[in-house]
Simulated assay, not measured.
Amino acid sequence: MKHLKIHIVLLLCVAIFTLSQCKPEPKESNPPTSVGTPAPITPPVGFPAMNIPADNPQTVEGVELGRHLFYDKKLSADLTISCATCHEQFRAFSDVDQVSTGVNGKIGRRQAMALFNLVFQEEFFWDGRAQSLEEQSLHPIVDPVEMDNTLTVVISRLEADSAYPSMFKAAFGDTKINEERIGKAIAQFERTMISAK
């Protein structure tokens, strides 16, 4: 009888130990929010390390979506300007005016910065107030002297557009359109603007 109790206690100890070692599979803390075809950037020789967040890898589809958003006037309140209005491609994505002009002729506070080699930067805007390109890309949309829009309106316009849902699906895996994905796509496109001359 005494040996039986010892065996039962030992079996219980082994069972408890075994169960304590069973752990659920860890959940991925930050699952990738991009899907698609990788589009790695090759920096010119001698350039610093690139600043590409792990949760926003460069993809062909993400860059293409970002390019469309960059040139789309739907981002502005009155549908008259896009990012490219103040960052003109033929001027190295810069603005010739000393102070940029927003919707309804509103005069801004500063000249729009030239957009090149942003993939090597860690702070954005003249005063460095944005800590990521994803964050920076949304500011002009809501700035009252730039595009003077709301992200809610922008999202509604993009959802109503026949092309954008499928472009977001190609870039991010489903048709959901939100401010995070808008910022990520524009950032991916802007990171491709590299000048080594």
Score class of each variant (00 low, 15 high):
residue 131 Q to F: 12
residue 132 S to W: 05
residue 132 S to E: 00
residue 133 L to I: 11
residue 134 E to Q: 14
residue 137 S to W: 03
residue 138 L to F: 08
residue 138 L to N: 07
residue 138 L to K: 11
residue 139 H to A: 13
residue 141 I to R: 06
residue 142 V to D: 06
residue 143 D to K: 13
residue 143 D to P: 06
residue 144 P to K: 10
residue 144 P to A: 03
residue 144 P to S: 10
residue 145 V to G: 00
residue 145 V to A: 05
residue 146 E to D: 13
residue 146 E to S: 13
residue 146 E to L: 09
residue 147 M to G: 06
residue 148 D to W: 07
residue 151 L to I: 11
residue 151 L to G: 09
residue 151 L to Q: 12
residue 152 T to F: 12
residue 154 V to M: 04
residue 154 V to G: 05
residue 154 V to D: 03
residue 155 I to W: 11
residue 156 S to A: 13
residue 156 S to Y: 04
residue 157 R to Y: 11
residue 157 R to W: 12
residue 158 L to A: 01
residue 160 A to K: 15
residue 160 A to H: 13
residue 161 D to I: 09
residue 162 S to H: 12
residue 164 Y to T: 03
residue 165 P to W: 00
residue 166 S to N: 14
residue 167 M to K: 14
residue 167 M to H: 03
residue 168 F to E: 01
residue 169 K to E: 15
residue 169 K to V: 00
residue 169 K to C: 02
residue 170 A to R: 08
residue 170 A to I: 00
residue 171 A to L: 02
residue 171 A to K: 06
residue 172 F to D: 03
residue 173 G to P: 10
residue 173 G to R: 11
residue 173 G to H: 11
residue 175 T to F: 01
residue 175 T to P: 04
residue 176 K to T: 15
residue 180 E to R: 15
residue 181 R to V: 01
residue 182 I to K: 08
residue 182 I to G: 03
residue 183 G to V: 00
residue 183 G to W: 01
residue 184 K to T: 03
residue 186 I to T: 04
residue 187 A to S: 15
residue 188 Q to V: 00
residue 189 F to S: 01
residue 189 F to I: 04
residue 189 F to A: 00
residue 190 E to V: 08
